[in-house]
């Protein structure tokens, strides 16, 4: 159970990053709405690649350390 929750952390963090990008892009970028959506998807994708191994490794370390 703990492991599956840990596995969800990467998409959640990435989703948060994509949402932040969406908001910032709507506020500051001169971009059509669909481009902003596309940009958010790309941010989500790259953020997942970055966070997935990092968080998986961290949660793996913790699980290994558990008695």
């Amino acid at each position: 159970m703990k492991r599956s929750l840990a596995g969800l952390r990467a998409p959640v963090v990435s989703l948060a990053a994509a949402a932040a990008f969406f908001v910032l892009a709507r506020l500051f970028a001169e971009a059509p709405p669909l481009a902003v959506v596309g940009g958010s998807v790309w941010v989500f994708f790259l953020a997942t690649i970055v966070t997935l191994p990092l968080l998986a490794r961290r949660s793996g370390d913790r699980t290994d350390g558990e008695p």
Binding site: F21, A25, F28, A29, E30, W42, L46, I49, L54
Partner: peptide, 21 residues
């Protein structure tokens, strides 16, 4: 490789939000 993806992400965000304009 992780660093490169993080950099690609930063590059995209910068050029989308600021650089292009």
């Amino acid at each position: 490789i992780l660093g490169v993806h993080a950099l690609a992400l930063a590059v995209f965000v910068f050029w989308f939000l600021v650089g292009y304009r």
